[in-house]
Amino acid sequence: MSDPLFEFLCRMGDNTLVLGHRVSEWCGVAPVLEEDIALANTALDLIGQTTLWLNLAGEVEGKGRDADALAFRRDVWDFRNVLLVEQPNGDFGQTMMRQFLFDVWHKGYLTALQDSKHDQIAAVAEKSLKEVTYHLERTMDTVIGLGDGTEESHNRMQKALDKLYPYVGELFVRDDVDDAMIAAGIAPDPAALRADFDAVLDAVLREATLTKPESDFAHKGGKSGQRHSEHLGHMLAQMQWLQRTYPDATW
């Protein structure tokens, strides 16, 4: 295992990078103009956070790589994002459900991360949290609105939840990297954040008239980098093709 702090920062940055890119895929094709702009704002927030996390990761690594090098010059097996964020957009409801599940986790995690003993990490968490608080407000309302909406929207949201819920468990898995971060007082225990997550999730699903799947089965392997889903490679091919084809190209 490489330096756990580097691993940890890549996890944070890769989550926001991959989700940010996924959300940006809606640009220009969202169902209404207002949602199109809102989604683009969310994507930009996430990519802005990525810059902070991955630049910090590059600094910690000390090999001269910056955020761009990490984002565009690594291949699938080096990515450390959770599987949830690399899942395809599907329909608008599925994108909103994915975003909502991530936002609830993200807000809880960043809140805890503000107390990090690592000053820069605490500062990035604090800055990101303002953006993420708004993301969650928005997705929470949308999940409730569509879940408790028409028969069509309800069914689509339930389908989205059934599809994405198996990716929730990975957010709370604790492994060697987490152990090292907890011991150093840098990051919280992910497993300890599950109860708060469930409380928010249950309350929102109740209001949205949606039913949480009974099985707690969880797909894993994204955060550790052991086994990403087939979707990430396709996404990276699109995201990275310019830098792969014309290395060091600039504007």
Binding site: L33, E34, I37, A38, N41, Y134, E137, R138, D141, G145
Partner: peptide, 9 residues
Amino acid sequence: SAIKNARDV
């Protein structure tokens, strides 16, 4: 949601 949309737009 109009306020949220206004915020974003």
